[in-house]
Design a protein around this nucleic acid. Structure first.
Lengths: 363, 363
DNA sequence: CACTCCTGCTTAAACGTTAGAGCAAACGGG
DNA sequence: CCCGTTTGCTCTAACGTTTAAGCAGGAGTG
């Protein structure tokens, strides 16, 4: 059959850069009509198929560029059976500054890896802790994203468990020792907390020390508390310690500090499980007319960017959220490629960040 | 034709909750086979089409729930000609904490509005200021997202201009007075800067005052500088002022403060065009043994969450980024619905936030 | 010169969805 | 009892892509 010379007068001549009707997108068909070959030939030409002649390829590429052809992602996804995007699932967004920054760092890392693969990124929020079928499950089952990175799930989130069992392409952020089959990227919080605790005890000689923990149904606070106790034990010094529980919020940190300062009047140092609670503690300590670090030393955890800004600067443990995002994305791509990530559960190291809140640096 | 009683033994009986082969997604065909009707009937039943009988609808919904059917988004997008997601485009991610927080606030707002519409969110980054065809154009032309919200474009970004002219469904964050046809959501920075400037002058009597501006090829710094001058003029007092230019970074703010303190030794107040530069100025002032606010009062702009944490707390102008995100999304949806947003260029008001850095509050 | 093989394309099918057209049966009115 | 209307579904086509299969013509081989 004769190539049918394009549909009735869609393009007048061969004038360059005269895009179609505004609303209409340029498809393979348009490029094909432009070049005078079939649309599959165009597809193959753009894919650099060996069975397409070089002159044709050149002509196709020129025409595609001229018309501004961009492959329709829905068409591709449908044909391929998988979309070219991944999702990042963040919990209900009711958090505050510190939590925001965590996700932003994570996102930066994920984005970097996704960009390198030319993969689009979707951000999905888990409306509530248990809004029936979780958002990510809908995202995955609708094939809108071919894989997901789930940030900050509760230690016993039923969705997470089900997901891991269903072998969906999901990477969890955090340690999930109870789900060995799940692919996860966690932080070595035990080591991090131990390191900072030992710093307080061994370098600064502070042996009366309190810990403000987060809710103990999450792995992270559990690990940090464990590291705290391990640090005390391994310091080789006799320490007195106490524990108060917060919920990672500044206000709860302040309340916890209140409780500690009331009950342990000779406390020398407070180590909070995150910077936000540490900041709350700072406010409480100050409100009592005490000085940091002279009267009470203070340490936090996370270092997502604001612990630097307080006065005094907050000594803390740096959690490499950006690296974690990058690693999580890499693991997810391995999962999608079919190659099971070598250690399903990877753990990244932390870094002790010394500032002024723990006292003068040792010479 | 007889309904063909499902494909060979895919489901044994009617046992509930027995999902298909792990990898295979559940499609309309599966539900149709389960119920014993055609797939289009299933589609119509799920869409609550009036021409489908109630018993059939019930049966279909039950079967869909039982099998865990989730519509394939690629299929839908392809058929509908538009995807059910929108994109948020953020500039190259090389920014620091403050910038991160801005986007996070914005994202929270956009997410809220998108969730209400059951629309997915893509996050795309503009690799470089001019990476050939911009990321968002690819996203839009590939129909991966049906609209985009572009955060923080330069005042004379050629892509933005072209996009506005091409009438793509895009909402710009920021004021774009030169592009009247573009839909944008901006901040009333002139008013905000005027207000804080007048506060410094009128309430605190600080008449020797310097402004640290951002790069003047962006609308925001221009507006804030204009507001600064307007504030001085309208204060009704004779003021001496000076100007230094930074790039919104902490370090540049510090450098600008250095320049100001060197050249204007009797400066009483510094108003920086964002909190990050104000923090840099704070460091410089302190390094010189001067006190804030006793020796030099300080004010910033943005209030994305960290200006509260410094000591002294930073007096600043609150930019309602979350509201802007929500509004931008709403505008985008209006655009996609075909109803042109009433005022194409909307401007949200700011709020003065008084903290300690500007001096003691007037009783 | 007949044959095989290669080259370079075309045709067709499929992915999952939706919607308009079509059609059989039931139902009501005359 | 027959015809028109309504009801409730089925059939088909289309969205844009990729790819397997097919096919015409030319080149090379016997």
């Amino acid at each position: 059959m004769v190539p049918l010379a394009a549909a009735p007068s869609r393009r007048s001549g061969a004038g360059p850069a005269a895009p179609r009707a505004p609303g209409r997108a340029v498809t393979l068909r348009d490029v094909a009509a432009e070049v005078g070959i079939s649309q599959s030939a165009v597809s193959m030409a753009l894919a650099d198929h060996p069975r397409i002649g070089q002159p044709t390829k050149d002509a196709v590429r020129a025409a595609a560029a001229r018309l501004g052809y961009v492959p329709n992602s829905a068409g591709r996804a449908l044909r391929a059976g998988r979309s070219s995007s991944i999702a990042v699932v963040v919990p209900n967004t009711g958090q505050h500054v510190f939590g925001h920054l965590y996700f932003m760092h994570l996102l930066v890392g994920v984005t970097a890896e996704a960009n390198a693969r030319d993969v689009a990124l979707m951000v999905s929020t888990n409306p509530d802790e248990s809004h029936g079928v979780a958002a990510y499950e809908r995202v995955l089952r609708s094939r809108a994203a071919s894989g997901a990175i789930v940030a900050s799930a509760s230690i016993n989130d039923p969705n997470v468990k089900r997901m891991a069992e269903a072998a969906l392409p999901v990477v969890l952020i955090g340690r999930f020792p109870h789900l060995p089959q799940a692919v996860s990227v966690g932080v070595d919080d035990v080591a991090g907390a131990e390191q900072i605790t030992r710093h307080l005890v061994e370098e600064h000689g502070l042996t009366r020390i309190a810990h403000i923990s987060g809710p103990l149904d999450h792995q992270q606070p559990v690990d940090r508390y464990e590291g705290f106790r391990a640090g005390l034990a391994r310091s080789g010094r006799a320490c007195t310690h106490s524990l108060a529980i917060g919920d990672f919020s500044e206000e709860s940190g302040r309340a916890a500090a209140r409780q500690i300062l009331d009950s342990m009047t000779d406390v020398q140092a407070i180590f909070a499980a995150n910077d936000e609670m540490a900041y709350g503690a700072l406010l409480e300590i100050r409100a009592r007319g005490l000085r940091v670090p002279e009267d009470v030393a203070l340490a936090g955890y996370d270092d997502f960017g604001v612990s630097r800004l307080t006065t005094p600067g907050l000594t803390t443990v740096h959690v490499p959220a950006e690296d974690m995002g990058r690693l999580a994305a890499a693991q997810l791509f391995r999962l999608l490629d079919g190659t099971a990530p070598e250690p399903a559960q990877s753990v990244v190291p932390t870094r002790l960040v010394l500032r002024e809140s723990c006292g003068p640096h040792a010479g």
